[in-house]
C-alpha cells in the first residue's frame, strides 16, 4: 500500500514546528501503524535524515506510551484501540494521513510527536493511592467486596494513562483520567477511607496544571482505548460535591511526647 503522510516535525520544545509531507510506499496491510513509521524511519536514516520521533513501548496496547493524533482522532480511526494496535489495513490505499502529537498546554511537546505527560503523574501523586505501607496488612479476605463494585472499579482501573481523553477533548480536560482514578478507589472499601481527601486534592492539582473544564462532549469516552465511561466523571463530581459539602475541615494536630 501507498500513503501520503503529513507528520508534525518539531526539533525540540522551543522550536515552532510544522507538518512535513512524506511518502510511505510498499507498506504491508498487515503491518501496524508503528511498523509503517519504522519503515519510514529506516528510509530517513538511509538518507542521513533525522528519523521521526514518537513514543511507543509495549506495542501490545497496554503500556499507554503511544500517543499519536491520527486524522483528527487520538489513536486513529478504530474504537477501543491504541495506536500500536492499529494496522494499516484500516486505511485506504493512497490515503493522506495526518499525524500530530497530543495537544494540551499541560502536555508540552518534547520532540516531533512526543509530549511530556508528567502532569498525569503529578495528579496521581496528589492522592491516587491508598495510604498503606508494605506491612501489617490484614488478610485479603477480611473485607468482602461486592463483585459488582470490584468489577466496576476494575473498569475504571483499566485506564492506561495514555492521555487520549485529554487529546480528544475540545477543552483538553483531564476529567476522565482523574475521574477514573477517583472512581476506582472510591468504589472499593480499601480506598473509601480517604476518598474525601483524595478527590479534593486530585481535582485541585488537576486544576492547577492547566487542563480545561469538562463540557460533557464525551469525546473522551468515544476515544478512550480502554473505553472508560464518563459515568466515572459523574461519580467524581458526586464525590467531590459530597466532600466539599459534608467533609469536616482538615485539622492539624500537634503534640509533644
Amino acid at each position: 500500500m501507498i500513503f501520503t503522510l503529513k507528520i508534525w516535525r518539531q526539533k525540540n520544545a522551543s522550536d515552532k514546528g510544522g507538518l512535513v509531507t512524506y511518502k510511505a510506499e510498499d507498506i504491508s496491510p498487515d503491518s501496524s501503524f508503528f511498523e509503517m513509521l519504522d519503515q519510514l524511519n529506516q528510509q530517513l536514516i538511509a538518507k542521513g535524515e533525522d528519523p521521526v520521533a514518537f513514543d511507543h513501548d509495549c506495542r501490545e496496547g497496554i503500556c499507554g506510551t503511544c500517543s499519536l493524533y491520527i486524522n483528527g482522532r487520538p489513536h486513529g480511526p478504530l474504537k477501543g484501540t491504541t495506536t500500536c494496535q492499529l494496522h494499516m489495513r484500516s486505511f485506504r490505499n493512497g490515503e493522506t494521513i495526518y499525524v500530530e502529537p497530543w495537544r494540551c498546554g499541560a502536555f508540552p511537546v518534547i520532540k516531533d510527536l512526543i509530549v511530556d505527560r508528567s502532569a498525569f503523574d503529578t495528579i496521581i501523586q496528589a492522592g491516587g493511592y491508598v495510604s498503606v505501607n508494605s506491612g501489617g496488612i490484614p488478610d485479603a479476605n477480611t473485607i468482602p467486596v461486592p463483585k459488582l463494585d470490584a468489577d466496576t472499579a476494575f473498569d475504571a482501573a483499566a485506564c492506561i494513562g495514555c492521555g487520549a481523553c485529554v487529546a480528544s477533548c475540545p477543552n483538553a480536560s483531564a476529567m476522565l483520567f482523574v475521574g477514573a482514578k477517583v472512581s476506582h478507589l472510591a468504589l472499593l472499601p480499601q480506598g473509601r477511607v480517604e476518598a474525601e481527601h483524595r478527590v479534593q486534592k486530585m481535582v485541585a492539582t488537576m486544576d492547577s496544571l492547566g487542563f480545561g473544564n469538562c463540557s460533557n462532549t464525551y469525546a473522551c469516552e468515544a476515544e478512550c482505548p480502554k473505553e472508560i465511561a464518563v459515568t466515572n466523571i459523574a461519580r467524581m463530581n458526586r464525590e467531590f460535591l459530597a466532600a466539599k459539602i459534608f467533609a469536616e475541615k482538615e485539622k492539624q494536630i500537634s503534640f509533644t511526647l
Binding site: G105, G212, E223
Partner: peptide, 23 residues
C-alpha cells in the same frame, strides 16, 4: 479557560465522536 488549555491547536479537524452539538 478551555481555550487557554490548548494553546497550540491541531492542524487536522477533530473527527472524534461527540454528544450531538455538545461542542
Amino acid at each position: 479557560r478551555n481555550r487557554r488549555s490548548r494553546p497550540v491547536r491541531y492542524q487536522h479537524k477533530s473527527k472524534s465522536e461527540t454528544s450531538p452539538l455538545s461542542k
